[in-house]
């Protein structure tokens, strides 16, 4: 068998590609071609928060009212929030 000279250089891995590290470095916002915008209709019900695959929506107090706020650093523009919003409070814009 040929000797594997790379042996010493082998990187250590955790099986299954499982890590307990943060993935915050992966700024998925750069993927976005559509941009969801939460309008004033928003009732702050939080449905979109549950469905957002990036976990980048938070309910915050905006001008004394509960409202969904999107973190565009990570929002990848999948528009799931718009489709699940029961009162169609999220509108779709084209990312410039």
């Amino acid at each position: 068998m040929p000797k594997n000279n790379n042996k010493s250089k082998k990187p250590k891995i955790s099986i299954g590609g499982i890590t307990a590290k943060t993935t915050l470095a992966n700024k998925t916002g750069a993927w976005r071609s559509k941009r969801p915008e939460v309008t004033d209709k928003c009732a702050g019900c939080g449905v979109c928060v549950e469905y957002c695959p990036e976990g980048c929506i938070a309910i915050q107090a905006v001008k004394g009212k509960r409202k969904a706020v999107i973190d565009y650093t990570y929002c990848k523009g999948c528009m799931i929030c718009a489709s699940v919003c029961p009162i169609k409070a999220v509108i779709e814009k084209q990312e410039k």
């Binding site: 990187p11 891995i13 299954g16 590609g17 499982i18 890590t19 307990a20 590290k21 993935t23 992966n26």
Partner: peptide, 13 residues
């Protein structure tokens, strides 16, 4: 206690 599974692996890994 967040973890990632099936993470991104570059050619090096």
């Amino acid at each position: 206690q967040p973890i990632s599974m099936g993470e991104y692996a570059t050619p090096q890994y």
